[in-house]
Design a protein around this nucleic acid. Structure first.
Lengths: 167, 167
DNA sequence: GACATTTGTTTCGTGTACGAAATACCCCCG
DNA sequence: CGGGGGTATTTCGTACACGAAACAAATGTC
């Protein structure tokens, strides 16, 4: 905010809400379509993500995988469990550090990775291409700013709820 | 974010990926914090959303609720089930159309709505306030453009199947 | 007024998604 | 050598989240 807060204008609030709604829409809808596409290959959305990540990088530990997917370890454990029983992936204990599990594609997983051309969040990515270079740079900058603020709030600790300078 | 040591990738592709990643980050992290905050009142994230919606509007049918929350009916049924056994909400059959169920806050639900000050996605909303008016307008415009493209793709994709065209 | 169709809600089965606790293994300090 | 503190993964219990099918009330058609 620059000059004055101007006691919640309905317009401002509506604009904020619209931004939040739009982000939720983009995320949930892209996810839904990813899931639907993945299904044609008997995969779920997260499973497709795992396959594409592993196909691109080679092998990842479970924690690296969960960092990449922005989900918790315990969630990824379940996903890998199901993928392992579907023979898409296998777990290999690391030699150097016997705590870590390396996740690797099986031959079946690899061939599936070659077959499936769609990327996770494809819908989202495609729609991005319609923006000009200038626009996507601007978008990235603004979103990055938001991200920084969120991270700052998170780092600021799990203190009070929305305890802000009220008004 | 990424585990990959992406020193200097081609900016274009990296920019797209960064945007996608950032949106996912914003959504999941805000959701996580909302959940955490709601928990202090023995609520889950979606339950807080329901309470705030009902407190603002009064009463809603299950379908209206699921539209507002961008989730499926079957999901909301479960949420309302749990809220009903916690005596936060009650189901009332509509008189005019006996198929519809109206969801209404109980007195316990209402007093909770007054007690809990935080809004769903509070973290997200707060971080938005750090943007200038100009910036949030720009952000809204660009996101809106993305949303339009996604909607267009969805409409085009649903030609084959008989999916309900939403607008 | 009997029928098929549509619309609103629930049921069911599967797959995330989370936090907390348990487990296994690493490293370090003494 | 031994224990303490830390990290990596799994287990467990609960709550979404979805699609498909079941169900019920409303509406359209004749």
């Amino acid at each position: 905010m620059s000059v004055l807060p101007s006691a919640d204008e309905p317009e401002d609030k509506a604009a904020f809400d619209r931004i939040v709604e739009t982000v939720i829409f983009l995320y949930t809808e892209s996810r839904r379509l990813t899931k639907e596409q993945a299904r044609e290959h008997d995969l779920t959305g997260p499973q497709l993500t795992v396959i594409k990540l592993l196909a691109g990088i080679g092998e990842l530990s479970l924690t690296e995988l969960s960092d990449n997917m922005q989900t918790r370890n315990s969630t990824v454990t379940g996903i890998i469990d199901r993928m392992e029983s579907a023979d898409l992936v296998k777990r290999v204990r690391s030699e150097s550090d016997r705590r870590v599990v390396r996740i690797r594609l099986t031959s079946k997983g690899k061939s599936l990775a070659r077959t499936v051309t769609i990327e996770p969040m494809a819908l989202f990515r495609e729609s991005l291409e319609s923006l000009s270079m200038q626009e996507s740079r601007t978008l990235l900058k603004l979103l990055g700013k938001l991200e920084q603020n969120v991270r700052a709030s998170l780092a600021a600790g799990s203190r009070a709820a929305s305890v802000d300078p009220h008004d």
